[in-house]
Design a protein around this nucleic acid. Structure first.
Length: 312
DNA sequence: AAGATCGTCAACCGCCATTAA
DNA sequence: ATTAATGGCGGTTGACGATCT
């Protein structure tokens, strides 16, 4: 028998012996005990020595994503969701890099979250999730609303103590605004604080780099153009219409430096032109109680963030 | 009550970079 | 310098439970 045939037969036998699919309790136990004794690494060797009929890769993945003691389970906290949105704006689909900023969370989990929660919204809006337009929607609407949710939660106060990327001045500003009786205006200030204080060049704020501004402008206008050609035609997607209008508003307030001017992000007080543009329904949206609406235990879904624009 | 559809998430796959032989 | 092994990453799949019709 030629050696190549023999090798091929052996590899087939090995492949036949390998298990796939969900891990059993017994396999988990073998892996945990082996790593407890000998540590991680050399996964192929580990799989053999531990008596696991799995590939090294499979063992590594099972350990890192599920069995490792410091892996966090359960829903993502608002802070974690905020970080994911923020960092994805900055780094794109660099899941492992993003995961490094969320202790206990795996790249797989973050990727799943992005696909199930974030991309879903992009699909509903009929926007490419990797497009500049969608990034801007996240920056201009999603993150601020997330901040607003956090503003009203007990969680928000705890953020100060854990080296949050939110500046300390944020809460201060919001308090000042509360005193001044500016409801939604606090959001814009929050964004501005983020903008001024963030160390990174590209942060979650609506400000964009000069090089990006043209593309953003065009993409936002294209969203608006679609709205214009079919202002009420996106059946069952009034939220889309609202977003398109807001996008138009943002797109038309880009200042000469490529950033958005103050009024742009102050969604609480749109210009007269935009007010004309908005329907009564839209104005009602702004009056909803975001903070206290359906917010329990600091855990909520992305869908809630889009409410009352949710897509049903 | 039952089948269809949807959402979630663990697991797999293929590719690439790094390292050791 | 080359090659094989290994680890890491991002994309994709499929099982399964939840929800809808």
């Amino acid at each position: 028998m030629p050696s190549s045939t023999k090798t091929s037969t052996n590899s087939c036998e090995v492949a036949d012996q390998l298990r796939r699919g969900p891990w059993t309790l017994e396999e988990d136990s073998l892996l945990i005990h082996y790593i407890a004794r000998h540590g991680e690494g050399h996964w192929n060797l580990l799989a053999k020595r531990a008596g696991l009929r799995r590939t090294g890769k499979s063992c590594r993945l099972r350990w890192l994503n599920y069995l490792k003691p410091d892996v966090k389970r359960g829903n993502l906290t608002p802070h974690e969701q905020f970080l994911i949105l923020e960092l994805h704006c900055k780094w794109g689909n660099r899941w492992s890099k993003i995961a490094q900023e969320l202790p206990g969370r795996t790249d797989n989990e973050i990727k799943n979250y992005w696909r199930t929660s974030v991309q879903k919204q992009a699909r509903h809006l009929k926007i490419d999730a990797n497009s500049a337009a969608f990034r801007d929607l996240i920056r201009c609407f999603w993150i601020p609303r997330l901040l607003q949710k956090m503003e009203g939660s007990a969680f928000f106060s705890s953020m100060k103590s854990e080296n949050s990327i939110l500046p300390q001045s944020l809460e201060q500003t919001m308090k000042q605004q509360q005193v001044a009786g500016q409801g939604r205006g606090s959001l814009s200030e929050a964004i501005q604080c983020l903008e001024q204080n963030s160390d990174s060049e590209q942060c979650a704020s609506p400000r964009v780099s000069s090089s990006e501004s043209m593309n953003n402008n065009i993409s936002q206008i294209s969203v608006f153009a679609e709205y214009q050609t079919n202002p009420f035609g996106v059946t069952g997607h009034n939220d889309y219409n609202t977003l398109a209008k807001d996008c138009y508003y943002v797109a038309n307030n880009v200042d000469s430096s490529g950033g958005y001017d103050k009024e742009t992000i102050n969604l609480a007080s749109p210009s007269a032109a935009v007010k004309d543009f908005m329907t009564d329904g839209d104005c009602q949206l702004a009056g909803n109680d975001w903070v206290n609406d359906g917010f329990a235990d600091g855990i909520w879904s992305m869908g809630e963030l889009w409410e009352p624009w949710s897509f049903h």
